[in-house]
Simulated assay, not measured.
Amino acid sequence: MNLKCGISDVVGARIGVYPMQDNFVEVILGALKETDKTGLYVVTDDLGTIIQGKRERVFAYVKEVFLRTAHAGEHVVANVLFSVGCPGDVPEDFDFDAKAKSVELPMEDMPIACAWSLYPLGSKEYFQVIVEEVEKAMEMSKVEVESYHYCTRLDGKARDIFNLLETSFEGVSKRIHHTIIHATFSKGSPSKTKEKIHI
């Protein structure tokens, strides 16, 4: 299947997960091996894991990898970038229509924090789009939303935060095709929640 950039619905992502513990290799590789990659192009290198596929599968895969890592670890951080419509992106020649089995993840109720940045690219109205999406997020009572410098902070259950990110990504990309989300997730940090330390 040959898909052209700009007209395909293939989404790309890169995730790096960082368990703050001695057996981090075991935890990371275990999460990657246990997560079903059906319908996805997945390749791992020394900087993280690249994923390409349909939006629903990409978000589900990233969520599952993070949750499996966070469940096996203690303090775990993940950096994730989601992208669609990049003019320089070339989707792999791959069958993205293969169907994956449904997976129950009881750890979806895990409380996490997320620093969320949204980049609608190639439009003069990008800032208005960002403001509108953040306002929509603030209306979602299941997730705590707070404006920070250079990002928006989200606190809540993993399920609700990932749903918010995917819904936002879908909505913005329908208006501005080249859309990027950058998100930093954290679970189990020993720091006091939301405490700001001036150095």
Rank of each mutant, 00 (worst) to 15 (best):
Phe59Lys: 04
Asp95Tyr: 12
Lys54Asp: 09
Thr49Ile: 08
Phe66Met: 02
Asp109Ser: 08
His71Gly: 05
Lys101Asp: 01
Val65Trp: 00
Val129Phe: 00
Ala70Leu: 06
Pro106Gln: 11
Phe94Pro: 09
Val134Gly: 01
Leu105Arg: 14
Glu139Ile: 03
Val80Glu: 07
Ala115Ser: 12
Glu64His: 08
Phe96Gly: 05
Val43His: 13
Leu81Thr: 10
Arg55Gln: 14
Ser102Phe: 06
Phe127Ala: 05
Ala70Arg: 06
Gly88Asn: 14
Val131Cys: 08
Phe127Val: 09
Tyr41Ser: 13
Met138Tyr: 04
Gln128Met: 03
Gly53Asn: 08
Glu64Lys: 13
Gly73Asp: 00
Asp46Ser: 12
Asn79Ile: 04
Arg55Ile: 10
Val58Phe: 06
Val103Pro: 03
Ser141Cys: 03
Phe66Ile: 04
Gly122Ile: 00
Tyr41Trp: 15
Ala137Asp: 11
Val77Lys: 06
Val58Ser: 04
Val145Cys: 12
Pro120Ser: 00
Asp46His: 15
Asp93Leu: 07
Val84Glu: 13
Val134Cys: 04
Lys124Phe: 10
Asp89Gln: 07
His71Cys: 04
Asp93Val: 11
Ala137Val: 07
Gly39Phe: 12
Met138Ile: 04
Lys101Met: 01
Leu121Lys: 06
His71Glu: 14
Pro111Gln: 07
Val134Met: 04
Val131Met: 12
Ile50Asn: 10
Lys54Gly: 03
Met110Asp: 03
Trp116His: 04
Leu67Glu: 05
Phe66Lys: 02
